[in-house]
């Protein structure tokens, strides 16, 4: 047990970072294919990272540096509190409520860092990011509350374990309703098109990242990949049963089981991610108020209905 915990502490952030990075690469490739291009190699983000770490970027001050460091560190810590397959080192403590707050560190750290860059594009981007977050958080909170009320726990680990026994939430009544709502807001959580207003390169020169060069950009790319991973991992854990396989199949115990569990988990993550990339590749960008109006209409309504049904049952 202790060994697994240590393994989890060491491996789950690594898995998170690497998966996040690879997902960005895969996304570029997939978008290229949708656009009938050949596309860059999947490892292109890694190449970019290596280059970026060797560049000599300008710095705007202490907050510029430490905000970004805090942002990445916060996101990595968040992974420790998420079950990654059966690796769930700290997910007992705090549970989903802690996660809803830890999620804030990443964007806020980046916002602070960008803020000292003193560029209006940063401010606009962050303003949009916060508004958009408010847009999807309303629904997300409804969904989280539905899940927590249904399973009567605040621990995400218990939610996953319950699913491995009773089947995935997405395919069980009444959690299918919040599950659908989650699917509807997932692109907004990931910040991909049509919800990429916050870092729209064409309008506001990539928003919060406008002053980032070199290792700053590298860290922010790592953070971006990681937060995409987190957004999907949350969905997979809450609604797709984390490591569990549908049907009567059970993973073996022991190290092999843990390994297979992580693989199953990553497969689910990849699947959900590819869904989102397809959506994002085929839609144009929404303005922020359009996005908020969308997020507050159908997804929020479905989420609300879900919460009402869950709390009534």
């Amino acid at each position: 047990m202790v060994g697994m915990k240590i393994a989890g502490i060491i491996f789950s952030p690594i898995i998170g970072v690497i998966t996040g990075l690879l997902l960005t690469g895969a996304a570029r490739k997939m978008v290229a294919r949708v656009e009938w291009r050949y596309g860059p190699p999947i490892l292109q983000p890694v190449i970019d990272l290596i280059k970026l770490f060797f560049q000599r970027p300008p710095s705007h001050g202490k907050t510029f540096d430490y905000g970004l460091i805090a942002s990445l560190a916060g996101s990595i810590v968040l992974v420790l509190f998420l079950p990654v397959g059966r690796l769930c080192p700290l997910s007992e403590g705090g549970g989903l409520l802690l996660i809803t707050y830890l999620i804030l560190i990443g964007p806020l750290g980046m916002a602070l860092s960008g803020g000292e860059g003193a560029n209006p594009y940063v401010s606009i981007g962050i303003s949009r990011k916060l508004i958009l977050s408010l847009g999807y958080e309303v629904t997300l909170l409804l969904i989280l509350l539905s899940v927590m009320s249904e399973y009567d726990t605040i621990s995400i680990f218990n939610v996953v374990r319950a699913q491995s026994e009773n089947g995935w939430s997405l395919f069980s009544w009444p959690l299918v309703i919040p599950g659908l709502a989650y699917l509807l807001i997932l692109p907004a959580i990931l910040g991909v098109k049509p919800f990429d207003v916050a870092s729209a390169p064409q309008e506001i020169s990539s928003g919060p990242h406008v002053e980032y060069g070199g290792k700053y950009l590298a860290l922010s790319k790592l953070e971006g990949g990681l937060s995409e991973f987190i957004g999907i991992a949350l969905f997979v854990n809450l609604f797709l049963g984390g490591w569990s396989i549908p049907g009567s199949l059970h993973l073996p115990a022991g190290v092999l089981g843990v390994f297979l569990g992580v693989l199953v988990f990553l497969a689910k993550v990849a699947f959900v991610f590819s869904l989102n990339v397809t959506v994002s590749a085929s839609f144009p960008r929404l303005r922020v108020e359009q996005a908020v109006k969308y997020l507050w209409s159908w997804p929020a309504f479905i989420g609300l209905v879900g919460l009402i049904i869950v709390s009534a049952l």
Binding site: R37, P40, P41, I47, P201, H209, E211
Partner: peptide
């Protein structure tokens, strides 16, 4: 982009 050449928004 297949050669890794990608337009970005800012000189930074």
């Amino acid at each position: 982009e297949r050669f890794g050449v990608k337009p970005v928004a800012t000189p930074r």
